[in-house]
Amino acid sequence: MKVNLRIWRQKGPESAGSFQDFPNVEVVPEMSFLEMLDEVNRALEAKGQEAVTFDSDCREGICGSCGAVVNGDPHGPGKANTLCQLHLRSFQDGDTITIEPWRAKAFPVVRDLMVDRSAFDRIIQAGGYITARTGSAPDANSVPIGKERADEAMEAATCIGCGACVAACPNASAMLFTSAKVSHLGLLPQGQPQRFDRVQKMVDQMDAEGFGGCTNHSECEAACPKEIGVKFIARLNADLIKANLGNLRK
């Protein structure tokens, strides 16, 4: 099977980019999307040309490194997917596939398909942790937590920080990411002491990074490889309002 690729090429954050066409690329349906890009790069290098830069690490859909917008969809067509878990069987022979990086002011393009997502790291650094005595791991179930609450915290904790929510959002908002990171701590007893300080600091950092605000389109939820729901955004909103109106911050 053959596909026509249009891949975004950009030398650096300040340079203007454009699409480069790769017509009639020979692929097999079993190939993963990143294996196809590897083949494209092998061919480019053989010709002495610059390879297409893209992020990838585990290639198992669990690390959150990879990601690009494929035909208008972050991580490509289909639900609950990462780019590395997208396979060429999702496309037809002769398809034109357009590939471009996440587009957000807070995610500047480093090169080609690679963007700088350290804005996410700074949101975590602002408060996405608990301060507790470390030492040996406590016994399992020494702090009893109800099954439903544990499940909900786990759902939030599945966020791999890939940035698809930002890429999918009409406003390039990081609310789904921030809400997941606030909620997986805020739902558990260990996260309670800093709960309202945390939400204020993380939201302040999110705003300072230049992400947009949420206008409730739910495109983030549809694009999330871990299917994290916008109910966590409601939780984040509630916690921030409580923190301010109840003066619960320290």
Partner: peptide, 9 residues
């Protein structure tokens, strides 16, 4: 997005 962005939700 130069190639457009699709809506689903």
């Amino acid at each position: 997005y130069a190639g457009g962005r699709k809506n689903h939700a």
